[in-house]
Design a protein around this nucleic acid. Structure first.
Lengths: 153, 153
DNA sequence: ATTACTTAGTCCGATATCGAACCATAAATC
DNA sequence: GATTTATGGTTCGATATCGGACTAAGTAAT
């Protein structure tokens, strides 16, 4: 039995996959945060970016689910964004328990400059895999993500 | 311009990839931590697991690099493991600045029971992608990881 | 309409995470 | 071999993260 672990069993494979995912998550986090202004952290950017991709006006809970973080964490992240004037929160007219998160102009500008700052780094590694491969990996990961999401009950 | 973002540019693809990785990292973290004993968190398990896969006796810095976390974070994680008696740390005989991390029997038992506890969850999703696909994804991610690791100077 | 029950969000206390500064030892330069 | 310079780890202070308990508002059941 060599130093290779149980990479032959199905679960062993997933262990390895999640390990790789964890390390890459760590690397990308460091990469992004190095370019973000002092005091801002990856989730801040990610949330803003999401609000642009998918319309803003999302509720905090929707955002928490989108990123699979506890809602308390999202409260905290949104508080940081609001303090910096990147988003404003208004009560949801359809449901008084709920709120809606709206981007401000400053928030949009922040996103643009952040992307401009990070793009060069990404460009530097963008030739590692060819686009079709990246596309394929994304799709497979998305399939797995949806499955796990559903299995979470 | 539909709701699709710049998924056509190379950097846009990587944005999407890292986003997917972040969410999956979050999901797997939650999955694992739900099965770990109170007070233990994913990095605790991951470090122990790593020490088994690759021999123990690693130095804290080697571990920090393996997972791409700051060394201060690793200090903290190792302190937690030591407090629980899962590892012991001795000075590196070859370099007095350095230490070596050794697994205890309790540490090995912890790993075994943790794996036993988590395996069923993994088994439940292990049919999402067929093993060959998982293998391929791991390899592509590993390629990217190595590249980013190297680019980190 | 009153009484469960559920859902959205926050507050709180306990870690976890991380950058900056620091100490000790090692390696490199002169 | 004394003086830089680099390396391995810890300490410290500031946030981030998260589970548990709570409040307020909606929904369902009667």
């Amino acid at each position: 039995m060599p130093d290779t672990p149980d990479t032959h069993t199905a679960t062993g494979l997933y262990f390895e996959l999640f390990n790789e995912i964890g390390i890459l998550g760590q690397l990308s986090r460091a990469l992004f945060e190095a370019r973000l202004p002092e005091g801002l952290v990856l989730p801040h950017f990610t949330v803003i970016n999401h609000l642009i991709r998918v319309q803003d006006g999302r509720t905090p809970l929707q955002l928490a689910r989108a990123f699979q973080v506890p809602k308390t964490s999202m409260t905290h992240t949104l508080a940081g964004l609001e303090k910096r004037g990147f988003v404003t929160m208004r009560v949801n007219p359809d449901d008084a328990r709920s709120k809606q998160v709206w981007l401000t102009d400053a928030g949009r500008r922040f996103r643009d400059t952040a992307i401009a700052g990070i793009a060069p780094d990404l460009a530097g590694i963008a030739d590692t895999l060819d686009p079709a491969e990246v596309r394929a990996v994304i799709d497979k990961l998305a399939t797995l993500r949806k499955r796990m999401d559903a299995a979470r009950d």
